[in-house]
């Protein structure tokens, strides 16, 4: 087997691999800036909880309409909204902290989701929903992923300044900009972007791994760049690399696409943490000497 056979042929020979690559690249590019902002807002764990929270919605949709993309998307969005609403309600009505509320709801929704799918579907269905299945990426899914990618890149471009200021000092944002419209809605807008990206991710990445292409490249980028201008392209590039290499890995092994992509992204992140330019093991050791 030549190198070309190994690295390129899967994508030239098979249409489903081509579609998977396009979808994964689009997800990497639209997810990376969200991941960077999420990391700066210290929201990565909340995002993770949210990604699992969409599962019961997808399960109910599967229950009702089978493997219909639009039903699953609608179900996922609805479930995420319900979980976020419940978390807000729990923290308001009880002494529970937000992270604890999310932990409770994410465990619960994961269990409910798995129970629902086990009830009707096979274990193959369960694997598909939890870890992604590149065979499921049809033309329709590709359209959804591409639309979400365009919408979220456009929204981030327009609201970028607000997102950055809100993450830096949210109290300042609200007091100084009180006369500007929509100042109080920044968290909501961010949450909405996160949600549509998670739902778009689940076919390729699975609900358990959906956050992988957002958060891991962002974490890795922080070791290579100190500025937002540097971090964003780095995160996109590393995400795209992980998407491609993960699909190659998935093709040649039996590993589902979600975990394969996350394995590569995780390796890149660990590697960056070891030898990256800023704040890595090596950089910190260099400073001490």
């Amino acid at each position: 087997m030549t190198l070309t056979d190994f690295l390129i042929s899967p994508f030239t020979d098979y249409a489903f691999m081509k579609r998977a690559l396009v979808a994964a690249l689009a997800l990497a590019i639209s997810g990376a800036p969200l991941g960077v902002l999420m990391m700066l807002r210290r929201m990565t764990l909340v995002g993770d909880a949210l990604s699992h929270a969409i599962l019961p919605g997808i399960a109910v949709a599967f229950f009702v309409a089978g493997l219909s993309l639009w039903a699953m998307t609608l179900g996922g969005v609805t479930a995420a909204l319900i979980v976020a609403g419940l978390a807000a309600l729990l923290t308001r009505l009880t002494d529970m902290k937000e992270d604890a509320a999310f932990a409770l709801l994410y465990l619960l929704s994961l269990a409910v989701g798995v129970a629902l799918i086990s009830f009707k579907g096979s274990s193959a269905h369960l694997m598909h929903v939890l870890f992604g299945n590149i065979l499921a990426i049809d033309q329709e899914t590709l359209t959804l992923v591409a639309s979400v990618c365009c919408l979220s890149l456009f929204t981030i471009a327009v609201l970028y300044r607000r997102f950055v200021i809100d993450g830096f000092d949210g109290a300042f944002m609200r007091t100084a900009g009180a006369q500007r419209r929509g100042v109080g809605l920044m968290s909501l807008a961010f949450f909405a972007l996160l949600m549509i990206n998670l739902v778009a991710s689940f076919q390729a990445m699975g609900t358990l791994m959906a956050l992988g292409l957002m958060v891991l490249p962002a974490l890795a980028a922080r070791f290579w760049a100190k500025t937002m201008d540097g971090m964003l392209p780095f995160a996109m590039g590393l995400g795209a690399l992980a998407a491609y290499a993960g699909l190659v890995l998935s093709y040649h092994t039996a590993i589902p696409s979600g975990p394969a992509i996350v394995l590569v992204a995780g390796a890149i992140t660990v590697f960056s943490a070891m030898i990256g330019r800023f704040g890595s093991v090596m950089a910190c050791a260099g400073q001490r000497n």
Partner: peptide, 15 residues
């Protein structure tokens, strides 16, 4: 936060 001093001060212009 990954902002330089000028950018951080400039956030005061935002409103």
């Amino acid at each position: 936060y990954p902002l330089n001093v000028r950018d951080a001060v400039s956030t005061g212009l935002w409103p």
